[in-house]
């Protein structure tokens, strides 16, 4: 068993899944926003990065790691809600290009602000768990406490989000206002508030992804979520932008693909893995691999 666990193939599987859960989280956060407001939030990564900076720099003042995580997520949620209210709400009913352009602009502002405030040098955050791989009778097992923490946290958040949408009254209201805003409004759901809550939830999930990224080897720098956002978007697009399960599966798939390209070809071209998968998936099923709806709105 231990020989099996220490083979390089298994190493790559673990590595791929560890990256994949982060992509899944980002993809999930994109799907939440897409479902509620039909906006693809291009600033999702940057918003999460910004929230993480605000939370994690509290470490310098002697605040404990877990408090910093909570601050990051709270700041992320506030930022998400405010973004919906201020930047997105005036654009409902406008051409679909408009919110894309606005969020791209917001991405630029956040990244420039972050490097203005905190400089663009990478900041390493003391990880809460060791990154050293476990050993079994002298064989390395390619799992560290940090990787386990990363996977458990990510999967826990996903289950939490799923439970919120499926089993709570708030989740029911959120789903109803995404599916049929007019009817929901007639039934007494405050649809506008639901949209804001959707954005807050999504930004919170994104902030957790950014916290995990910043705590790992990657570190925290103003553009650290760019590549991760692209991978997360591709994951969500493979799933069709509508399916949370599809987004999670897509994220894991891209994580694995990148890890294998990295191991067997070259680390520089690893981002290509996601793009190749996206192109193939779009050629086979342009509406996404996991969507049920076959026709598109005209």
């Amino acid at each position: 068993m231990s020989v099996f666990l220490s083979s390089s193939f298994i190493h790559n599987i673990f590595g791929g899944l560890a990256t994949g859960v982060i992509y899944s989280l980002v993809a999930l956060s994109l799907v939440i926003i897409w479902q509620s407001t039909h906006v693809l939030n291009f600033a999702q990564g940057a918003m999460a990065m910004f929230a993480t900076y605000i939370g994690m720099t509290e470490i310098d003042r002697g605040v404990g790691y877990w408090w910093c995580v909570i601050i990051s997520v709270a700041v992320g949620m506030i930022l998400g809600g405010m973004t919906e209210r201020v930047l997105i709400r005036p654009l409902y009913g406008k051409p679909e290009i408009n919110p894309i352009v606005v969020m791209v602009g917001f991405l630029g502002v956040l990244e420039a602000l972050a490097s203005a405030i905190w400089t663009s040098t990478t900041r390493n955050i003391t990880e809460p768990f060791s990154q050293v791989y476990y050993q079994d009778h002298g064989h390395l097992i390619f799992l560290s406490a940090f990787v386990i923490f990363q996977m458990v946290l990510a999967i826990g958040i996903m289950l939490l989000v799923a439970a919120l949408f499926r089993f709570t009254k708030l989740g029911l209201q959120l789903r109803a206002s995404a599916l049929a805003p007019e009817v929901s409004r007639l039934l007494g759901i405050r649809v506008g508030r639901m949209l804001t809550i959707g954005w807050m939830l999504s930004a919170g999930v994104g902030a957790i992804a950014a916290v995990i990224v910043a705590s790992g080897n990657f570190g925290l720098f103003p553009t650290n979520m760019d590549g991760i956002f692209v991978a997360g978007f591709i994951a969500a697009a493979i799933g069709g932008l509508e399916s949370p399960m599809g987004a999670v599966a897509g994220g894991l798939l891209i994580g694995l693909a990148e890890q294998f390209i990295l191991a067997y070809w070259s680390p520089n071209v690893a981002p290509l893995g996601g793009i190749i998968i996206l192109v193939v998936a779009l050629m086979v099923r342009p509406q996404g691999l996991f969507t049920k709806r076959m026709s598109r709105r005209v």
């Binding site: 291009f42 894309i100 591709i234 981002p271 290509l272």
Partner: peptide, 24 residues
């Protein structure tokens, strides 16, 4: 692959392309 896509899908696809050029 992109012309069958609209709006956000297209924007994301082209973003992925421009993100891939630099590593290449």
């Amino acid at each position: 692959p992109s012309t069958r896509l609209r709006g956000p899908y297209l924007a994301g696809m082209t973003l992925a392309f421009s993100a891939a050029v630099t590593p290449l």
